[in-house]
Amino acid sequence: MSNKKQHILEHPMDDLLRMDRIPHIWCPGCGLGSDVAAFADGLKRAEVDFDKVAVVSGIGCTGRVAGYIKLDSYHTTHGRAIPFATGLKLANRDLTVVVFSGDGDLFAIGGNHLIHAARRNLDINVICVNNFIYGMTGGQNAPTTPLGAYSSTAPFGNYEAPFNLVGITAAAGANYVARWTTVQARRLSQSIATAAKKKGFCFIEVVSPCATVFARKNKGGTGLDLMKEFRNRTVIDHKADPTQIPLTMDDEIVCGEFVNREDPTFWENVQNGIKDQVEKNADWEKIQSEKNKRLYKKTLKYEGSRDIG
C-alpha cells in the first residue's frame, strides 16, 4: 500500500478538491470535470484567500459541484442557490461567494432569483453550466434546449423557444457577463479569475457537453465529438450584443466578455443610503421613548387602564 502511494503524484488542483470523494458521479465525456478544473485554476489565478471563498450549488448534475470542491460549500434546494448565496454574502461581506449550478436550476426553477440578483447587482459570481438538457433526471427538456432538439419530454423535437442566458442577465443589470464553452478552458478560467476580483453581479455561461443524454438523443456522438463541434462553431466576439446571440442547434456559438461595467453593488447602495440617516438617528432611542410616552398617556386617558388577563 504505502509503496504504491509514493508513486501517486499530487495533482495541482488537489488542494481545492475533496479527493476523498473521488471518483465523482459524472458520466464519461461530461464537460463538468473540465469546468471544475477551470474554476479551481481561475481561483488560483485570482490569488484570493481560499478560506474566504464559499461555493453554493442547487440541484442537478452541476449541483453536485459544491460537493467536490474543498471550500466552504453548500448543496441547497433546487433553484435556490442564489438566494442562499445572497444571505451568505450579506451576512459576511468579506466572503467571495460563487454560485455554481446548471441551466435548469438557475433559469427554470430559479429564474426569478437570477434576474433579481442581477437587478440588485449583488456582489456574487454565478457560473452557469449550460448543457441544454436536464441530465440528472434523464434528459428532459430544459429552458435552454434549442428549437428542434430532442429530449425525453420532447419526443417530436423541442417546440419551446429557449432562453438566451447572457442576454437576460445583461438586460437584468449584471456588472459582468461572459460566455465560453468547455473547449476554451484557459479563457474560461481567466474569466472566473476576473469575476472573483470584480465587484457586483458576475455571470459566466459555460456551454458544456452532455454526452450521455443530450448527444445521444440528438445523434451528437461522444463527449469528444461535441467538444470538436463546439470548437468549430465558436466565434469569439467581445463586442457582440449579448441579447442578439442566442444558441441554436447548428449556428455559431458566439463567446466573449460581453459586459464589463462598474455599477455600484447592492451593499454600496445600502451604505450610501443610510450614511446620513445613521447620524440623524443618533438619538433614536430617546426620540422613541418620548414619542411612546406621549402615545401611552393619550391611550390610557382614552381607554382607561384595563388590564387584560
Partner: peptide, 25 residues
C-alpha cells in the same frame, strides 16, 4: 443586513445562507 427578497422561497433560502455566515437570521 435587511433584504426584501423577490418571494418567500428566496427569503427562507436566504436566512439559511445568512445563518451559515454566522448571523442570527
Amino acid at each position: 443586513a435587511f433584504i426584501q427578497y423577490e418571494d418567500e422561497i428566496a427569503s427562507m433560502a436566504g436566512i439559511i445562507g445568512a445563518s451559515w455566515a454566522g448571523a442570527k437570521p
